[in-house]
Write a protein that binds this DNA or RNA. Sequence first.
DNA 1: CGGATTGTACTAACACAATGATACAAGATC
DNA 2: GATCTTGTATCATTGTGTTAGTACAATCCG
Lengths: 132, 132
Amino acid sequence: MDVRINQADGQPIYLQIVNQVKYLAASGRLRVGDELPPIRVLAERLLINPNTVARAYRELEILGIVEKRKTAGTYVAEGAPTLIKRERIKILADRVDMLLAEAHRLDVPFEDLLALVNKRRETLRFNEDLKP
Amino acid sequence: MDVRINQADGQPIYLQIVNQVKYLAASGRLRVGDELPPIRVLAERLLINPNTVARAYRELEILGIVEKRKTAGTYVAEGAPTLIKRERIKILADRVDMLLAEAHRLDVPFEDLLALVNKRRETLRFNEDLKP
DNA sequence: CGGATTGTACTAACACAATGATACAAGATC
DNA sequence: GATCTTGTATCATTGTGTTAGTACAATCCG
């Protein structure tokens, strides 16, 4: 499960985990029944405290996204809310707005931003292709 | 001066101010000698505590971006660091990467993301044209 | 059965963001 | 000169994220 934490961006770590798992499940990239890494394992991988992961998983359970089978692990729940494309697009729209505002502040023309998006996409897709 | 605060995004408010002013100055959108709003005024406008703005201005002074004329206000400093376009692009690249990662998690195809970027740009540019 | 693994619970501690409320000093303005 | 406005300096307080350490209960697995 591809979860990435950014220690420096201000957003609480547990919320970063919650949102990323939420979106993975909402889009179908994580399917119902898929198992999440054990708390201790994910904590070790992200170099954070197990309590922080536990908190994220707790929130995810409250949200109905995840289901805990006592001692067998944590799984994507049956009734995990899925988002139709329109809703997912809406979430992205907010991010895009922030990006556009940032570009404007940095006085980077829209055309340059577009070029950048295409370029970074090429790079990232390349990295992805290397994975199994 | 167009500074916008997002109370909910986790990033400390004072840092949001610092970064936005930093980028505005680095790109030339804020010019040397331009006056920043008084602490109390900006605080009122953003609906935050004056202490928070004061902290942001203090950090900005330490960074050499801003200069305080005792009782006359706060101004963009002479030696305010400017960033060449290459550096500004680099900053944007990080944002773009995060956006691409989010789109991937949400399973939104790249083409749709591109379309979204264009659409939001149209909307935002429209709003801008309405300003004096 | 017995040990490993899972999530849970709890407490203490620390750091930091942000608020609220003053009070102060010094230059600007009338 | 009197007043306003500027940034400065405190201090106490609240809320919250994160770490650390420990113990526990339940279930899975060999």
